[in-house]
């Protein structure tokens, strides 16, 4: 017994701050190894390409459509303030915002409904939310061309209720319908996750403290599901802002969005410096916007 105690104190004694620090260092090394594949992937396929884009954005387009590197200039960035470019930017912003708001208004009640069902129905409904992902996104968007088309079912319904020559395809409305359709699941999933986690006794407590159903929702349910709202709006807004397929297939020449515009710089106009400047500025804006939004959302949630 006594010997054992001595042995213990012997191993205890050399534990110095140095030893502790090296243990912490070893632990953080192990952590880094776990993250290494992820870091490597992001560096090779995200950071390096972003850097290339960044470099190209200061280049010059030659008359033949080649990019001249070396004579660095800010021309591409100055052209961003062209009113045609700003118009596209505003349209993208407006459509992305509308998509986010409509998705939120549709998805919140739906996610709430799913989260408050019994476990079996809940599972079934969540599978149904995912079902669209089993079909290729391009194919689904093509389907919308038929639905929205001049002779499509939606036009027929609108015509029947008295809208003259309804035009949906190749308009902002058409794009919006497609965007909401495509992004709704990304809004439903985080909302469902946060509502499902909610401690319902808190809502009961609010009701017990004289809150009617709406007040209990406003003061308790909504603030406590804010993480889902923040997550869902980011997952909806960012891809909708840079959407490419929906405006390409459902929009027209008058309704160009950023995604298509950038694509045109690379393939149609061969103006890589301008396309790069556009991409880079938008990415920077999104990053800053997301950080600010997360900070503020995190405070309320």
């Amino acid at each position: 017994m006594a010997g054992k105690r001595r042995a213990l104190s012997e191993t205890d004694a050399p534990v110095t701050p140095d030893l502790e620090r090296s243990a912490i260092r070893a632990e953080s090394r192990r952590g880094f190894l776990l993250a290494l594949p992820g870091y490597a992937y992001l560096v090779i396929f995200f950071a390096v390409p972003m850097l290339i884009i960044f470099v190209y954005s200061f280049g010059t387009r030659t008359a033949t459509g080649k990019t001249l590197l070396g004579e660095w200039n800010l021309d591409s960035y100055q052209r961003l303030f062209n009113h045609f470019v700003l118009g596209i930017l505003w349209r993208s912003l407006a459509l992305a915002l509308a998509t986010t708001v409509i998705s939120l208004l549709v998805a919140y009640p739906f996610a709430y409904y799913i989260a408050t069902r019994g476990p079996r129905l809940r599972g079934l409904l969540m599978v149904l939310v995912m079902v669209p992902f089993w079909t290729n996104f391009l194919v689904r968007t093509y389907a919308w061309r038929l639905i929205l088309g001049r002779n499509g079912p939606l036009a027929a319904v609108l015509g029947f209720i008295g809208v003259n020559e309804p035009r949906l395809l190749f308009t902002n409305a058409g794009i919006l319908i497609g965007l909401v359709y495509g992004h709704l699941p990304f809004m439903v999933l985080p909302l469902y996750a946060s509502i499902e986690r909610l401690d319902w006794s808190l809502v009961e407590a609010a009701r017990d403290l004289y809150a009617n159903g709406w007040k209990a929702f406003r003061k308790v349910t909504l603030p406590l599901s804010m993480a889902g709202v923040v997550g869902g709006t980011i997952l909806t807004f960012i891809p909708a802002f840079g959407a490419y397929i929906e405006p390409e297939l459902l929009g027209g020449a008058q309704t160009m969005m950023l995604g298509s515009f950038i694509q045109k710089q690379y393939y149609a106009v061969s103006d890589w410096p301008f396309g790069s400047a556009l991409s880079f500025v938008i990415m920077a804006l999104m990053l800053v916007g997301t950080i600010i939004y997360f900070r503020r959302g995190g405070r309320t949630a």
């Binding site: 401690d199 407590a205 017990d208 403290l209 003061k219 308790v220």
Partner: peptide
């Protein structure tokens, strides 16, 4: 005209 003290307290965490 009643109020409840809940088992898990159900205090509003936010």
């Amino acid at each position: 005209p009643v109020n409840t003290v809940f088992q898990s307290y159900a205090l509003f965490p936010h």
